[in-house]
Design a protein around this nucleic acid. Structure first.
Lengths: 225, 225
DNA sequence: CTGGATCCCTCACGATACTG
DNA sequence: CAGTATCGTGAGGGATCCAG
């Protein structure tokens, strides 16, 4: 008798429906990792180490049923299965980046358990990129956090971020969680370099431009825990 | 022993953190209702009839701890408590509207249990409004769904939506769930009126402009359940 | 009446182990 | 490699109760 039919929010509302599609725990993080391209089950696991495999399995089915994700069988060689976003799912990218940017404003220090993944870092570069601040900038940056290496090529208002190193980067930025404070303007480039929380290879002047182009606006005077 | 520390996603990532702040079940719907202004506990219950009161209580505490919501004591008269978004919480409006618009694209027919609330309808008007399509339009619309009555005043690129009727509206639109198909272009204004799923008071020509100005882009060829 | 707190039940989540 | 099976726990859900 507690057996109410379903887990619907009971509202005829776009937002409520969106949350039924991608609002379950882990769902949006799965979408996040698929924004950068099709992935295998195991790749998804690698990007989300704390997701139980059964939950990943269920989420993928739900997302597929919701028209957000498509399951595709790979042809030989390298046979297998990949999951990819549908066109409809792709349309979440913008929302996802904005939500991530919003969350980044109040992101504190990472717990020891927290990891950074290549995908999340690439998405962070996309989310923080400000075309209007990239006026005449043309530069290639290589970013290293722990053993994660990604790169960003800025060409005026266009930016392209990807995994791996860059040949002939203008600047190599080797850092850690301090990257967030740096992008948020809570840590000046000079301070960052002096304190050793950021190490550079290349002209340090590029770093000033980097933090202009990739930016996290400060959160408006709220002190979360 | 099963007592793993917390419900963290274990990622140092803006999106993961955002989901820890507002990703729990019901949380974003609570934020939705607060976007339109401070509300009492009971007002929130009315807007979210299916939320258990203990969950609402917990969510409000969590949102408060996360710096998204602020609890404020009302002065006399009408003493009591209201919950309101912080500045940081307000910044979610844009994401919320976009996510709602995305969800609206694949919104099917309402289940018998589904309700529409005044707030969600006002937010839907905000989300679907296209300033660029409102070029020279100046009009006042009154929208009635069941016993819900809201209005929208369009003045060139500006729009203001609110609860209740309008004095001297250019058009009164009385309808039901068909409003979604109408805004999505799946139902033409003429069809809607002919089939009786929409009733008008005022010049029917206004309806054509209405569906231009308030619009849900079609979902890209995906057939969800 | 508002503004919750409390109880209890159930199911979804999460950890682990196991299979095609 | 790509998931399914199993099973314990705790969050969600519904009803009721209580204080101001």
């Amino acid at each position: 008798m507690g057996t109410m039919k379903c887990r619907s929010y009971g509202q005829f509302c776009g937002l409520a429906h969106a949350l039924e599609l991608v609002g379950e725990r882990w769902a949006l993080l799965v979408v996040r990792d698929l924004v950068l391209g099709p992935k295998r089950f195991t790749d998804l696991r690698r990007g989300l180490p704390r997701i139980p495999t059964n939950i990943l399995s269920v989420r993928l089915k739900e997302l597929e049923a919701g028209g957000v994700v498509r399951r595709r069988l790979l042809a030989r060689p390298a046979a297998g299965v990949v999951y990819e976003l549908t066109e409809y799912g792709m349309e979440l990218e913008d929302v996802l980046l904005r939500l991530g940017l919003w969350g980044a404003k109040s992101l504190g220090s990472p717990l020891p358990v927290d990891i950074v993944t290549t995908d999340s870092l690439i998405l962070a570069l996309r989310a923080t990129f400000r075309p209007e601040a990239a006026g005449e900038v043309r530069a290639g940056y290589e970013l290293r956090l722990g053993d994660i290496v990604v790169h960003a090529r800025v060409d005026r208002g266009c930016m392209d971020a990807g995994a791996g190193p860059l040949t002939e980067p203008d600047l190599v930025i080797e850092t850690g969680p301090a990257i967030r404070a740096l992008l948020a303007g809570e840590l000046s480039p000079d301070e960052a370099v002096e304190s050793g929380s950021v190490r550079l290879t290349g002209d340090p002047a590029h770093l000033a431009r980097f933090v202009e182009v990739f930016h996290i606006a400060p959160a408006p005077a709220c002190a979360p825990a």
